[in-house]
Amino acid sequence: MAEPVKGWMTRAQGETLWNAACRLEKGDVVLEIGSHQGRSTIVLGAAARTAGATVIAVDPFVDGRLFGGSPTRQLFERNIRRAGLDDVVELVAGYSTKLRPDWDRPIQLLYIDGKHDYWTYTDDLRWSAHLPPGAEILVHDCFSSIGVTLGTIVKVLFGRRYTYVDRTTSLARFRLAPPSARDRLRVLAQLPWFARNIGIKVLLRLRLRPVARLLGHHSPYDPY
């Protein structure tokens, strides 16, 4: 159902989202920050239905070429409707950073794929205040975006609240639990892959795709 929907999520990453949502229990809630046209929302919604959970999708649908504004919202709503997930997915249109301070509903799974600058991402991590201990947090474009990776270094590598678990390419999985020294070392082990991704982005902007292919990147788009 999600495959025809435009977006930046691979099939393997979709399976990671699916598995995380399937681990929920009846009555649980997934909070998704950044929905775009609904590619990841459909995966989360379909998986949540099997568990008896629901999804809250947060997206401001900002106007402009990169974000699409109200036309993108219409596509999102159409895609959710076509997938038959209207009863599972609740859309909250707004900025995650503005909604968070007044939020009072518990959540059990957090998926972050909003604005990728350091300040927004680290603020989005603060939604974890509504998660139970040990809950999962999934972050897209981690170790691929400079802002998200910097936020991960500050809040996870040097923090005391989040433990890095694993990643599916750029989709990283964390747990709301204090990290051990070994956990911190596993974050450090991802940094060479991050440096590779930044190098590929530079090569693509310099129109040096043949060189990027030597690094194993065969797409005209940034690594995600």
Rank of each mutant, 00 (worst) to 15 (best):
T97V: 02
T97G: 03
T97S: 06
K98Q: 08
K98A: 07
K98S: 02
L99E: 12
L99F: 15
R100G: 03
R100N: 05
R100M: 11
R100L: 07
P101I: 01
P101N: 04
D102C: 14
D102R: 13
D102L: 13
D102A: 14
D102N: 13
D102F: 15
W103G: 09
W103V: 11
D104R: 10
D104A: 04
D104M: 06
D104K: 04
D104L: 08
R105Y: 06
P106C: 03
I107E: 11
Q108E: 15
Q108S: 15
Q108W: 14
L109Q: 10
L109I: 09
L110F: 09
Y111R: 10
Y111Q: 04
I112N: 06
I112Q: 08
D113S: 02
G114S: 06
G114F: 11
K115P: 07
K115A: 13
H116R: 00
H116K: 00
H116A: 02
H116F: 04
H116D: 02
H116C: 01
H116V: 00
D117S: 02
D117N: 01
D117E: 01
D117T: 00
Y118N: 04
Y118M: 04
W119R: 10
W119Q: 11
T120K: 07
T120P: 10
T120I: 11
Y121V: 11
Y121Q: 09
Y121S: 09
Y121G: 03
T122R: 06
T122P: 07
T122G: 07
T122M: 10
T122H: 09
T122N: 08
D123K: 11
D124F: 09
L125I: 06
R126Q: 12
R126W: 14
W127P: 08
W127V: 10
W127F: 14
S128L: 08
S128Q: 06
S128G: 08
A129Q: 13
A129G: 12
A129C: 10
H130W: 15
H130A: 12
H130M: 13
H130C: 11
H130R: 09
H130N: 13
H130D: 13
L131M: 05
L131S: 05
P132I: 04
P132S: 09
P132H: 12
G134F: 04
G134W: 07
A135T: 02
A135N: 05
E136M: 14
E136F: 15
E136G: 14
E136A: 14
E136S: 15
E136Q: 15
I137T: 06
I137R: 05
I137F: 13
I137D: 06
L138G: 05
V139Y: 02
V139R: 00
H140T: 03
D141Y: 10
D141F: 10
D141L: 07
D141I: 08
C142V: 00
C142R: 01
C142D: 08
C142Y: 07
C142G: 03
F143T: 01
F143I: 00
F143R: 01
F143D: 05
F143Q: 04
S145A: 12
S145V: 10
S145I: 10
S145L: 10
S145Q: 09
G147M: 05
V148E: 04
V148G: 01
T149R: 00
G151P: 01
G151D: 07
G151R: 00
T152L: 08
T152I: 10
T152N: 07
I153E: 01
I153P: 00
I153F: 06
V154D: 15
V154I: 14
V154P: 09
